[in-house]
Computed example of a mutant assay.
Amino acid sequence: MKTLHFLVSILALASCVAFAYDPSPLQDFCVAIKDPKDGVFVNGKFCKDPILVNAEDFFKHVEPGNASNPLGSQVTPVTVDQLFGLNTLGISLARIDFAPKGLNPPHIHPRGTEFLIVVEGTLYVGFVTSNQDNNRLFSKVLNKGDVFVFPIGLIHFQLNVGYGNAVAIAGLSSQNPGVITIANALFKSNPPISDEVLTKAFQVDKSIIDYLQKQSWYDNN
């Protein structure tokens, strides 16, 4: 009988753990405060009176991005910051324009899984798994109409391997998925990461790190 009670208690605890999880974060961090008067809203948008809501709140025209830059790509996001009707819906999207040989460089979305559909052109895409999975690369060449999924939080990229321009649409599982471009974060941080950290991390000479930190890392978002 005691054994039965113990098993029931374990199952009840497991049930509580399974259903009592925290919601997904909508910003990089949110430091708790005791007095609300000292707080600020980040992604916690105020809601419009439903009586005043109209179709324009759910509409946005997305212009082609200008891919004439060092990366040869431009990401045009449509998150809750650009389309207020996305608030609380847990989704967003982005249009990605590529010049010939243009690259959307290795980056992560800390708060969203991404699925990508190629509208025009040919893209070489891929993502790298975590250390736990031995950093395996999953890659594929996509043509018009093809779809590929990048799991949340994993490094991924897209490269235009065609001879003309390319266009892709990305859907993301967060109203504010965030983006961290790996090279920019490491070599363009403010203030800079110390040479000692980066030389040991990449196992290269300090002169190489100094060179990389002096480059004009372009942000295509």
Rank of each mutant, 00 (worst) to 15 (best):
G65T: 08
K48P: 04
I96G: 06
T129M: 07
F115K: 04
S189G: 05
N221K: 10
L26F: 06
A168Q: 07
L103S: 05
S216Y: 03
K214A: 15
N135A: 06
N220R: 02
L4T: 12
V128C: 04
T76D: 03
K140N: 08
Q74T: 13
P151F: 07
A32N: 09
L159F: 10
L142T: 15
K140T: 09
K60A: 11
S92C: 14
I209P: 09
I51W: 01
V31D: 12
Q215H: 04
A94C: 05
I208D: 09
K188P: 00
P50V: 06
Y211P: 00
D97L: 01
A67P: 02
G112C: 08
S174M: 03
S73G: 02
L159K: 14
F115T: 13
G90I: 02
E120M: 01
Y211I: 01
P77G: 07
D49S: 11
K48E: 11
K140M: 14
S194V: 05
G85Q: 03
L13W: 00
P25Y: 02
I193E: 07
L93W: 13
D28S: 11
K144H: 08
P192L: 10
S73Q: 02
V125H: 08
V75S: 12
N134M: 04
R95I: 00
N221S: 11
F98P: 00
F127M: 08
N104A: 12
I169N: 07
N66L: 07
N69G: 13
E196C: 03
K2Q: 09
E196L: 15
V80S: 14
P105T: 05
T3C: 11
V75G: 05
P110A: 07
I117C: 13
Q82L: 14
G102E: 04
S9W: 00
A32W: 05
F41W: 11
G90Q: 11
L4R: 10
Q132H: 12
S207V: 02
E114T: 13
Q74M: 14
L7F: 15
V75M: 12
T79K: 07
I91A: 10
Q27G: 08
N134E: 15
V197N: 10
T122R: 15
F58A: 12
D57R: 05
V141Y: 08
Q215A: 13
I209L: 03
S92N: 09
T129N: 06
G72N: 05
N43G: 14
N165G: 09
P192V: 02
A18Y: 02
G162S: 10
G85P: 04
Q132D: 14
H109D: 08
S139L: 03
P50L: 09
Q82K: 13
E196P: 02
A20L: 06
T199A: 08
Q132L: 15
L137Q: 08
A166W: 13
P106C: 10
N69I: 01
V118W: 10
G145E: 13
P100C: 03
P77Y: 11
D38I: 00
F98W: 06
I51Q: 06
D81T: 11
V118S: 15
